[in-house]
Design a protein around this nucleic acid. Sequence first.
DNA 1: AATATTAAGTGTGTGAGTTACACTTATACA
DNA 2: TGTATAAGTGTAACTCACACACTTAATATT
Lengths: 229, 229
Amino acid sequence: MSYTYTYPRGALTVDCVVFGFDGDELQVLLIRRGIDPFKGDWALPGGFVHVDESLDAAARRELKEETGLDRVFLEQLYTFGEINRDPRERVVSVAYFALVRPRDYETRASTDADDARWFPVAEIPDLAFDHHSILEMAHHRLRGKLRYEPVGFELLEEKFTLSQLQHLYEAVLGKALDKRNFRKKLHSLELLIPLKEKRSEGSGRPAQLFRFDTKKYEKLKKKGILFEI
Amino acid sequence: MSYTYTYPRGALTVDCVVFGFDGDELQVLLIRRGIDPFKGDWALPGGFVHVDESLDAAARRELKEETGLDRVFLEQLYTFGEINRDPRERVVSVAYFALVRPRDYETRASTDADDARWFPVAEIPDLAFDHHSILEMAHHRLRGKLRYEPVGFELLEEKFTLSQLQHLYEAVLGKALDKRNFRKKLHSLELLIPLKEKRSEGSGRPAQLFRFDTKKYEKLKKKGILFEI
DNA sequence: AATATTAAGTGTGTGAGTTACACTTATACA
DNA sequence: TGTATAAGTGTAACTCACACACTTAATATT
């Protein structure tokens, strides 16, 4: 089976920048390429878009195939279309931005990835293609997003404490936040539901657990209400 | 000359949402399609991406070819990749977002566009393909952008008065703004350079002309400083 | 020449929200 | 029982957003 076109066509791929948070540092999931070009180098998970699937579907499929990740927060980032991004031929790549919860950390290697590993964003190795630019843009977007959209919850378990949330914000924004002001602000948004449980982890006073009120947030978002954190 | 691929490939296009401001209403530039599909319908200017040009270059080329517009503010918006966007075959479209100054309003029809016309955003006709969704997203983005980036200047002449700028903001945001607060805010940004000229248009006191301090803004942007207007 | 019309330009007081800042409480462990 | 650890809590100063009305400089009208 082969297809013919009168004019040359480039190929289309998707690439995913997957962020995770281990409670301490912001991390990115990379795969080691099992095939040329850039065989053996680290790269963003991704691959070719099939002619019969949407871009979002392609991103989810590739993520599943290469890392085993499923049901993540996924959003389109930007489309990279410089002519010589790929040494083989013209390849345009639609980049995606994903956030995963800690329990989804266990990943599987497969098909065209020898290996998959989490790297702290501060210690990213050299990457294949223009993946470093893509990662930079995604990181920039995450920092921006965190400030005006309650998206940090996607990087924590469903039940979390205010301290965990604050540590996440501090890790992503790269600066310390005042505990009292942070809590005041979060409570004023009225999007956290306190649970009846508490979590005691090692020493120290046990902390109140919360979950994010997704339904309430969706309603407010539809009305065009803005958040700032 | 023909090209063969083992697997089927979709086509790649760019589409541009071009905004203009006539001093009263926000407008969008549309072209009437001269060829099928949707022949005779209004659509966003755009077309196929060549294999040897970047996406940005393709957007600029198509804009020039179909509307005569050149040297506009241009920024990538979003990539639309649903499977059946185009009745002919799989077509992925990278949408762009353009802002043009009033004096660039005169447009030329050409090649595959019978006609090009400005429409007030409140009176957009039915559009070909999924162009209505694209336009909606662009409009939403413009409203958002205007609030946290000084981008409105791209829709005015290089020299403008504060009243003109305020009218633009009111037209895009769809609400009246307080004159004194608006001026106070704009002055506090320190990004407007007062010129030695004044403009007197018809009756009324002549207004101070300003130009936007692009260089200063670029410097501040590099430092990651945020603006809100 | 006097008067009317039009749009430009200007300052202050109030309330809301952001920021800075230090001690008490509940648990685990020695 | 006391010591270490992290959770939890309130207030005062300041900055920013918002509401609000008159004066000024020009053109148009009589």
